[in-house]
Write a protein that binds this DNA or RNA. Structure first.
Lengths: 217, 217
DNA sequence: ACAGTGATGTCGCGGCGTGACATCAGGCCC
DNA sequence: GGGCCTGATGTCACGCCGCGACATCACTGT
């Protein structure tokens, strides 16, 4: 039933890389999904419901998103590409771990929404096993991408993988603390702190933090 | 159709913690699943097929395993418990990362099957996105468990998490190299090697490997 | 005006995972 | 022995998931 019974926007004729004309289905779907997830929780929301609220069919939903989870992680792929690109452009990768961590810390995270928004999003993820799982996967893919970038910058594969893995983990820890927002520490500072914590743990490391012997960015 | 048309084992009257009498459904299911996964791949195998080959209904399959993936990771939970237990018993956790890594390296991995078996299992996992995903989750759960154990041993939460995460990552790298089996290096040795690689990467670490200042186990 | 294109809708399917209830065998107790 | 309890399975019915195949319809460019 019903087709084009919406009286909506009709711009987007000059938008680059847009699918010809804008019906906004994808946006409505994202919107509807987020609303429903907030209202009733992720697990208790079915694709059918989302589609209904967005005034499209279930089929259309699955044309835009591989599954329910992907709605939440919609821009993860772009994020990964950006980070990889940034690392490839980095001035200096002679210290791979530092390069990774700085690439991550250097990204403009506010671009993904206000800290408050990200905080709520994260709370939802933390509360939902399925989403936690998907989050792990995305995180792993970022690490893979960064590891690959390091290799392309001439780092030995084994080191690249270790550095990427550890770097992502370090940053994630910092990011979560930053999101929690107990103090108003800068994300970059937070990252350096966690990094020096790691230095404390590694056998054969000087415990004092001296994270910046080279170009300060 | 068919009920009890098997002429099988009938012992297990004195076995501890056994479900009263042994019909062996679970074993048959595991067996059938592994066979089918090898024959046609994981994705192309349905729960129905597995159940048929094991001579039970689909319903029964799902009573034993939450989903297809869990057949492969059946003993992961036990493994985690064991590792946590081992870490809680560890002589010395004043160097958390070392403690974690040694706990992992100290486990008798051959207990989970011959190296060759584990190698094939791992190849299957690596070739199947869904399994790779689940593997990540299990790995993460181990890290969580170990982190928790460290905390119970008096390590600060932040450090515990970092140490557990990094430790698991270090060990996994070593484990994979060991599985690949290009050289016949000992798993423990391999682990120490990777650990010193990490030391190389962390800013403020002496590059030389000196992984054992204290009790050699 | 006609053919082409791209977003949606429609239909139908097979796999997934679960709740509710039935059944059946062996163990237990009197 | 006979009846009761218990635990493993089977049976049935259901709703959700995700996709292939094809139909439509709006808009575009020539």
């Amino acid at each position: 039933m019903s087709r084009c019974d919406i009286g909506h926007v009709r711009q987007a004729d000059m938008v680059a890389a847009m699918p010809r004309w804008e019906h906004g289905s994808e946006e409505r779907l994202k919107q509807a999904a987020l609303e429903l997830f907030q209202e009733q929780g992720f697990e208790d929301t079915s694709a059918v419901q989302i589609a209904e609220r967005a005034r499209v069919t279930t089929r259309t939903f699955f044309r835009y998103f591989r599954d329910k989870e992907e709605v939440i992680f919609a821009d993860a792929d772009t994020l990964k590409e950006t980070l990889v690109h940034d690392l490839l452009q980095a001035a200096d990768v002679s210290e791979p771990l530092l390069a990774v961590v700085r690439t991550l810390a250097g990204f403009d995270w506010e671009r993904l929404g206000s800290r408050e928004t990200q905080h709520r999003r994260n709370a939802m993820i933390a509360a939902t096993p399925q989403l936690l799982e998907r989050d792990l996967v995305k995180q792993h893919q970022v690490a893979e991408g960064l590891s690959d970038a390091l290799r392309r910058r001439g780092i030995a594969p084994d080191l690249a993988e270790l550095a990427a893995g550890a770097g992502v983990q370090v940053f994630r820890t910092a990011y979560l603390r930053w999101l929690a927002g107990d103090d108003d520490t800068d994300l970059t500072t937070m990252t350096e702190t966690v990094l020096s914590s790691l230095a404390t743990l590694v056998p054969g490391a000087r415990s004092g933090a001296s994270p910046d012997p080279g170009t300060p960015r």
